[in-house]
């Protein structure tokens, strides 16, 4: 698995220049709560050699605004809206209330409850 570190400013351009729709398959976007920081990961694999998995990752504070990659990966909005709801992150263009109801707990996957 190739791990490529990126930053909040560069992530859109990094993934935009990496992702070719007929060569790479976007698997999923994931985020982990590390306590004081949030780790965000994007997984891709190649169509030609599917064992070759590429992971873009970055670490940021939980209040940072994470840019959307929906401009280059057309179906990323589902994963982004879900992660934004489940971890209470601020992701660009995420649909509010995609997963949770109005009386569900806020950000249930965070260790420290908001």
């Amino acid at each position: 698995m190739n791990k490529i570190e990126t930053t909040l400013e560069k992530v859109s351009s990094d993934i935009g220049s990496f992702y070719k729709y007929d060569q790479h398959h976007f698997i999923v976007m994931n985020a982990n709560d590390l306590g004081d920081k949030i780790e965000v990961q994007w997984f891709f694999h190649d169509y030609a050699d599917a064992k070759n998995i590429t992971m873009f990752w970055l670490q940021c504070a939980d209040t940072d605004r994470i840019p959307s990659i929906n401009g280059s990966v057309a179906s990323a909005w589902v994963a982004e809206s879900e992660i934004a709801d489940l971890l209470g992150l601020d992701i660009e263009n995420a649909i509010a209330g995609f997963v949770l109801e109005h009386d569900s707990p806020i950000a249930p996957l965070r260790k420290k409850k908001k």
């Binding site: 729709y21 398959h25 976007f26 698997i27 169509y47 990966v73 057309a74 179906s75």
Partner: peptide, 17 residues
């Protein structure tokens, strides 16, 4: 391919995944 479909839905369209 653009919408990253998987499974029989993608294979029926010719995506080798």
């Amino acid at each position: 391919m653009k919408l990253n479909a998987v499974g029989p839905l993608a294979r029926a369209a010719g995506v080798p995944i």
